[in-house]
Design a protein around this nucleic acid. Structure first.
Lengths: 226, 226
DNA sequence: ACCATTGATGAAGAAATGATGAACTAGCCA
DNA sequence: TGGCTAGTTCATCATTTCTTCATCAATGGT
């Protein structure tokens, strides 16, 4: 689950991001509207947390522009207490929920869960990276629209890497999550490496640009189009 | 999907209507009970959003009259917080759901989705996929118009798969839902596989295009006319 | 530049999975 | 009882998938 936090206070940003990461969300942040829009247009998020009070271009402007462009990502707006008229304005623009500052982290997490659940009950849950799209419910993977057939292990492995995109994952970790119950860390040989190799081949990941090798650690799914 | 909003506050009406239109619903509004009844009797709606507090003729009166006339359109009532006794009264009259003011637009949208889904399911009890049509109330299945006779287990299995179309369903899940109460996950042998085989035969699903095998998981009903 | 370590790769044997035909059981009705 | 139907289990086969291993290539430190 990819969440983008848009707020100009670094400290608050850090706090929220940290809490969300503990809940295993993939979190990115933006300090102003331009940065936010740039990110949003370049890759999909599952949820935006948007502060109304921003320098230069405020939350409403950003939200308005998004909706105009047809981006329907759920938005949770952060407002200072008492801005009732703002609430109304935001609703018109298509915000999905509100939270008044100051708020408790528990409250925030609850709202996020509710929003994600709601938006996900209609859309299908897919993880994308570059031209690759992995649909967790149909267990289908497409590469630039073309369907790619993966074996169960390959699928789980890719799913796990995408779920933890831009984070280096150790082989141990992968084994734990993909092999689960019965995995003997000693008798695994270079099993994972082989599966990664096969994945790269099927995904036409020639230079290892999508599944990056992290020497001494393991692998990482990177959406850095380097 | 046609929705009628009945509320005497123009501002709230406008807000709700705007949000619903963004979700691609067709929305009309009425400011009082008489206008509402007139509209409802002249053309069908899929859902009514009805405020309890209305001048002249209140929400209950309107709801009561509708139900008396045999109009079963789902109704979502808006109530001021704390009107507990009203809730009870509304339920008696046949309201389908409640929402306390003030509410978030996200909440409202979720409720609407739920209500529409619910009413749609009972009105249209048949699931189709490709040339196959399964009627859940008559328990008949046709293949290109020709009736196909399925055994109870086969029917339930197909029904479950169709209900979850385009989602890979595990054998465990199928067993849970089709066998229900007494199923022992260990003594099931390859029972499900056999039923699937028979289903495929009866449905002339030669290449397994409709009931797709998802290796390592189970099966999936797919309407991907590949 | 050299060495040591780490990762990549192709191939082959082992293991798992699913499809299928057939046998077997249980319930039902004439 | 005997003949049906539905449901379940079983053995077998063809594949697919997983794992292991030997070897080769790349990388980083000194």
């Amino acid at each position: 689950m990819r969440i983008l936090i848009i707020d100009d206070e670094p400290e608050l940003r850090r706090q929220i991001a940290s809490s969300l990461r503990q809940e295993r969300y993939t979190v990115e942040t933006a300090g102003d509207g331009d940065e936010a829009l740039e990110r949003i247009f370049s890759e999909p998020y599952d949820l935006l947390i948007l502060d109304i009070m921003l320098p230069v271009r405020d939350g409403f402007a950003i939200l308005g522009q998004l909706r105009d462009e047809g981006i329907a990502t759920p938005v949770l707006m952060l407002t200072a207490r008492g801005e009732v008229e703002n609430r109304v304005k935001g609703l018109d623009l298509g915000a999905d929920d509100y939270l008044h500052k100051p708020f408790s982290m528990a409250e925030l997490l609850a709202r996020i869960r509710a929003l994600l659940r709601r938006s996900h009950e209609q859309a299908n849950p897919s993880l994308t990276i570059g031209a690759i799209c992995l649909n967790t419910s149909t267990r289908q993977v497409t590469l630039g629209g073309e369907s790619v057939s993966l074996t169960p292990k390959e699928f789980s492995l890719l799913e796990f890497l995408l779920y933890n995109r831009n984070r280096a994952i150790s082989r141990f970790n992968m084994a734990e999550h993909v092999w689960g119950d019965a995995f003997d860390p000693f008798t695994m040989s270079n099993n994972i490496d082989v599966h990664i190799k096969n994945l790269r081949k099927k995904l036409d990941d020639q230079a290892g640009r999508i599944i990056v090798t992290v020497r001494g650690i393991g692998y990482m799914a990177s959406d850095d189009q380097a």
